[in-house]
């Protein structure tokens, strides 16, 4: 899980908007994409962004 403080500093690599956490996904609602969390590390790479269904 991501702590609150880390989540607060994260921004979407595509649009720089703030992100939110849902389950194990870091979500950018503007781009309609999500980023994974692996081993507790937020993976904020454009290549790893997946479309929200």
């Amino acid at each position: 899980m991501l702590d609150k403080e880390l989540l607060e500093i994260l921004a979407c690599p595509i649009c720089k908007s703030g992100v939110k956490l849902e389950g194990n996904k870091i979500i950018c609602s503007k781009c309609k994409k999500y980023y994974p969390i692996r081993d507790g590390i937020p993976v904020m790479l454009i290549d790893e962004a997946k479309d929200l269904e």
Binding site: E8, I9, L10, A11, I41, M44, L45, I46
Partner: peptide, 16 residues
């Protein structure tokens, strides 16, 4: 301490 996997050639932006 906080760690983020990120490519600084793609973008670099953090809040705060």
């Amino acid at each position: 301490f906080r760690f983020i996997k990120q490519d600084v050639t793609e973008y670099l932006y953090l809040k705060g």
